[in-house]
Amino acid sequence: MQIIDLSPDDENIVRQLAGWLVEQWPNSWPDIKSGLQEVRESLEEDRISRVAVDETGSVLGWIGGIRQYNGNVWELHPLIVNKTCRGRGIGSALVADLEARVRERAGLTIWVGTDDEENQTTLSGVNLYPNLWENITEIKNLAAHPYEFYQKCGFTIVGVMPDANGLGKPDIYMAKPVGKK
């Protein structure tokens, strides 16, 4: 496996990634047009867009980074691994590669918002406001929510936006330091 910059000239890969977005997150990218727009936006200045490819050039996964806070902080957006390749360390390798790219740019922190729209955690389907931090502290993964993947990559839950995706559907904010301490 090799991780390389996504090239705007590789229309086949751009289209494949757009299709993955539509398939994986139809609420966010309901059609190929919106998926293509997202992939092309990932190629803009002050962004990082990297793909993992195998020895034949087939795409295994994709990760992006968005520069924020004058480059001190970068948002990890998006991360997606081909369904047939999950569980083989590709996502972790893409996250480590993004960390290296952010460090090269003198970034200090990477953050990610990991939505819970499908009742995958104990933060979903409840009113989080009365006991927000208690709920965060006692979070449980009910159905393979990706927050545990990010924890394994060194991220920490730093907050939650209740009802971000509708009533009882929060966005879980996670962050990781990557700069020199």
Rank of each mutant, 00 (worst) to 15 (best):
C153I: 00
C85T: 01
I110P: 04
L142V: 00
L79I: 15
S124Y: 03
D115E: 13
A100E: 13
N72A: 11
N131K: 06
I80V: 15
E118A: 12
P78E: 14
H77T: 13
W62Y: 11
E138T: 06
I80C: 14
L79F: 07
G65D: 03
D116H: 04
V102L: 10
L142P: 02
L108W: 01
K140M: 09
N141G: 07
L123S: 02
H145L: 01
E55F: 07
A106R: 12
E148H: 04
Y147C: 03
D115C: 11
T84A: 13
L142N: 14
R105I: 01
G125Y: 01
N131P: 00
R50C: 01
E148C: 01
Y69W: 10
L132W: 05
N131A: 09
N82I: 03
E148N: 05
Q151V: 03
G64M: 12
T121M: 09
W111H: 08
E117D: 06
S58C: 08
G71N: 06
A144R: 10
D54A: 12
S92W: 06
V73S: 14
V126I: 15
V112A: 14
G154H: 05
A144C: 06
C153E: 05
A96I: 02
A52F: 09
T137Q: 04
V112L: 01
V126K: 09
C153S: 06
W74T: 02
T56Q: 15
G113D: 12
K152M: 02
L76R: 10
R101E: 14
D97K: 12
I66H: 15
V95N: 09
A100C: 07
R50G: 02
Y147K: 05
E75W: 02
S58A: 15
I110N: 11
I90V: 15
Y129I: 08
L94N: 10
A93Y: 01
A106I: 05
I66Y: 14
A93H: 05
P78A: 11
G125P: 08
V59A: 15
R86D: 12
N70W: 02
R86P: 05
T137R: 12
I136M: 04
H145R: 00
G61N: 13
I139L: 04
E134H: 09
K152R: 14
Y150D: 11
I90C: 10
R50Q: 13
L108K: 15
I136R: 02
A143Q: 06
E134K: 11
V59K: 00
Y150I: 00
R86N: 05
G91Q: 08
L94T: 08
S124L: 03
G87A: 09
E134Q: 12
E75R: 14
G91Y: 08
E134V: 02
E75L: 13
N70P: 00
D116T: 02
G87E: 13
T56Y: 09
G61S: 12
L108G: 08
Q151R: 10
N141C: 03
G65H: 02
H77G: 10
S58K: 10
I90Q: 04
G107K: 02
E104F: 00
I139T: 12
E99L: 00
